[in-house]
Amino acid sequence: MEAYLLNLGVLISLYAILAVTLNFIMGYAGIYSLAHAVFFGTGAYAGASVALNFSASIFVMVPTAMLCAAALSLLLALPALRVRGEYFVAASLGLQVLAVTVFAEWKAVTGGIGGLIGIPPVDIAGFEIYSPGSFFILSLVTLAAVVAITRLLVRSSFGRSLKAIRDSESAALAFGKNIALIKTTSVVISAALAAIAGSLYAAYMSFINVESFMLDTSVLIMAMVIIGGTGTQLGPIVGAALLLILPGALSYLSFLPQTEIGSIQQILYGLGMAVLMIFRPGGIVGRGRAETGEGEA
């Protein structure tokens, strides 16, 4: 039981990092990305490769993972953000589909469908972190750091620029904001921070393959943000916890036919999301706002 809870705690922390970093662009810059699992995966593969071939030190693994994801996100953001925001969703979906193929086929780096196995545990200054308890603490601390960084950014002049662009692009332009550059920067930061979760995930699981980084993961992360509350500090964490606890909790309800648990889960998700969006469009943590700002002409 304790192992089960610790494992759940680790996964919630790592997914919360993903949700918090996606919320950073969704909630504050109004950029909707369906490619967040790609940066999660890039972080995981890059971190795993470094750990397998070079060093499992967290100070090598994590920065490499961040750099790789940041570079990849630039490839998405540079062309996609020159045009209007709506196209970003489509472009990110394209990247997601493309990346799954690459993850599955690029055997030399990703191990192909079989994935990478025997990834060593992460090493912090000579201490290997492999017990679930210590890894849980590591992932919690990392989550706290990511939350602190995004919070700092959101409250800085950079965060104000993001919110200004979200509220009115034309007014932001009229006050000298280089929208494409600001949005690109936010996407790069978001991707780099998501890659931290990826590299820790690889070290924690010691095995990764493409199945963890497919479109359904991107959708799951987005659902975590929306259900928890887009543009709130706590929402993405609540959303991540809820969506990861729910499957386990359902399997404890013995009156449910256990063979159908998967479909029941999907039905509950769908219903829950629809009901939530009707009654609390701002998410669980968000304020239920009926009014919206004046639209763009």
């Binding site: 919110k163 700002g293 004046e294």
Partner: peptide, 13 residues
């Protein structure tokens, strides 16, 4: 610098 006829304030800020 300019203003807009429909203001375009940063409404949620």
């Amino acid at each position: 610098a300019r203003t807009f006829q429909d203001l375009r304030l940063f409404s949620e800020m």
